[in-house]
């Protein structure tokens, strides 16, 4: 029983990480219908920059902020300089973002090398502590991860539900043409949303580099997990990303614990099932 609870807790923490990574991805898709395949590269970039900032300043939260801002800037630059030129041509945008992801991955390999990086945690979070009731040790950082994801999720929900920017984004998801006709500078809004997506990806990268580690290849892992999460949860829905992340995170951990050899099958079985039964994703709206 203890083991089951621990594995559930592991699944929740992994889900928190997946949610952080996928939320920016789904946000961008929801508004612009752009499948941003460079999302993983933005995440890895954020992780590396966060590592450098945390190492230089010795202050971990600053690393998260720095990594997030760097990826936000890179995201805005990508939308402003490249993807914005092909607005409305989704296939070309997707292909361009694949090219970007490869170029960024190689540049990062060139600069940071092929070794593994781990962001040093503040002493308060570095170790583990005894869980009450269960009586086993658990890593502090993983619990912080859950709190962080919940805070980010609520903030994101507040931004989208309560602010003017959120209202514009929601309007844009429903009808971009109308938004444009009403006189909003859609190009500028797209850049802001891309920066927001980059910010979320970059922060997820630093968190991933703190709780786990980052190395070349991490970009593709998180791109794949983000894709699976939003396909299951529903493209463009932040709530869907949370639900998808929860399902995939738990499935992965139960798989690893109870059927290590075939663990990965569960993840994709869920995806196949969702695609067969509800192709728009669990909380997604079907295109009409």
């Amino acid at each position: 029983m203890t083991f089951f609870l621990i594995v559930t807790l592991n699944g929740l923490t992994l889900a928190a990480l997946y949610f952080l990574a996928a939320s920016g991805f789904t946000l961008i898709f929801g508004l612009m219908r752009t499948v941003n395949m460079a999302h993983g590269a933005l995440l890895l970039l954020g992780g590396y920059v966060g590592f450098e900032v945390a190492k230089t300043t010795g202050f971990w939260p600053l690393g998260i902020l720095g990594g997030g801002l760097a990826a936000a800037f890179a995201g805005a630059l990508i939308q402003f300089g490249i993807l914005g030129r092909f607005q409305g041509d989704e296939l070309r945008q997707t292909l361009a973002s694949i090219a970007l992801s490869i170029i960024m991955a190689d540049l990062m390999l060139w600069y940071w090398g092929g070794i593994t990086y781990q962001v040093a945690l503040p002493d308060a979070l570095a170790g583990g502590f005894k869980l009450p009731l269960l009586g086993v040790g658990y890593a502090s950082i993983r619990l912080v991860l859950i709190i962080f994801a919940v805070v980010v999720g609520i903030t994101l929900w507040l931004v989208i539900a309560k602010t003017r920017l959120g209202a514009i984004i929601r309007a844009g998801v429903d009808d971009r043409e109308m938004l444009r006709a009403l006189g909003f500078d859609v190009a500028k809004i797209f850049i802001i949303v891309f920066a927001l997506g980059g910010l979320l990806a970059g922060m997820a990268g630093v968190v991933a580099a703190s709780a786990l580690s980052i190395a070349p290849g991490t970009d593709l892992q998180f791109l794949l997990s983000s894709l699976v999460v939003v396909i299951v949860g529903g493209m463009g829905s932040v709530g869907g990303a949370a639900l998808g992340a929860l399902l995939i995170g738990l499935a992965e951990q139960y798989g690893l614990a109870y059927a290590p050899t075939y663990g990965v099958v569960f993840t994709f079985a869920i995806m196949v099932f969702v695609l067969a039964v509800r192709p728009q994703g669990l909380l997604g709206r079907s295109e009409t």
Partner: peptide
């Protein structure tokens, strides 16, 4: 014996097994 997929990031459930 615990066989893990190559490139796995999260070993926490193995750790407790």
């Amino acid at each position: 014996k615990f066989w893990t997929p190559i490139g796995a990031k999260d070993y926490s459930s193995i750790v407790y097994s």
